[in-house]
Design a binder for these strands. Structure first.
Lengths: 154, 154
DNA sequence: ATACTATTGTTGTAAATGCAACATATTTTT
DNA sequence: AAAAATATGTTGCATTTACAACAATAGTAT
């Protein structure tokens, strides 16, 4: 069958890459339009900290899949805007900078979540909700498998 | 229900971004390990040209979702390695550089496709094949919808 | 006909990214 | 106890990337 040829363009890898790329562009345009004053990456970090209060920088880096250097830089921005705080503490007897979201950060995060919700829903509205859930679930399993295979030097 | 809170971390956007990011890292490591001498992006371009012979640079840029500048640079690399040719021609009475894959390019592309196949299959082997197809299909529909919404200035 | 606009590809530049090296402190090894 | 290895965060740099400006050409408008 010609339709199932061995091609990058025919792989799930390709679909993932392209869809994610478009999603990223769309989100950037949305953030611009809605005058959201933090970047997508800062948003992801803020959301992750809100769910994992007291997390240290390196663990955050692993969750947002960025290296320590850039995670630090993202946190500089969030700290300057008073959306998170860095508190020196210990974890396993080691000095770490534990991260907490500030009241301003919570307010900002909720504001963004509400602002973008209707737009994001609109994007997936042509897909049946149960299909969205299903894809999300399968992707999640796929991602967890990938995390086992990929060696992350973070 | 607490499990369905309004969070980025709980969205399909997040799953897409994270999974694609991991996939990209894994592929980079695979290319390194298998001593593949072109980059992922060059591979994507080469594959796309092989499927769309005679395509011009801008149309290629739209397909691989890169701007014209970087698409040109990717093509410089592929041309230097004698994997593609640029032939000046016309499209709608306009001068364009039409792209063709060379015999060397075909050989290289096939070689890479075969080299990575078993590795890539291995990554998705824990997921039922029909589920992979299903996700690929839904992502494709999702991507096509996104393409309509996102304004691409390429 | 002249001026304006649009298309295609290239070049230049500022920002983002990843990687290695470093400083500091702790654990493990010898 | 001294030395080596590990963990954490920061800094520096080289590569990548996106965006804008440009050159060349063709269509459109005034």
């Amino acid at each position: 069958m010609k339709c199932k040829e061995l091609h990058y363009t025919n792989s799930i890898h390709y679909e993932l890459e392209q869809t994610a790329k478009l999603m990223r562009i769309l989100t950037a345009q949305l953030f611009e339009k809605l005058e959201i004053r933090i970047s997508q990456d800062e948003y992801a970090a803020l959301d992750t900290i809100s769910i994992n209060p007291g997390i240290c920088q390196r663990d955050l880096a692993k969750l947002i899949i960025k290296d320590r250097a850039n995670t630090g830089r993202i946190l500089n921005c969030l700290e300057e805007k008073n959306l998170v705080t860095r508190v020196i503490d210990t974890k396993d007897n080691r000095l770490v900078k534990k991260l907490e979201i500030t009241p301003d950060g919570i307010k900002e995060l909720n504001s963004i979540n509400i602002k973008i919700k209707s737009y994001m829903d609109n994007v997936t509205k042509k897909i049946a909700p149960e299909e969205v859930d299903r894809v999300q679930e399968i992707l999640r399993g796929f991602r967890l498998d990938l995390e086992k295979v990929v060696e992350m030097n973070i």
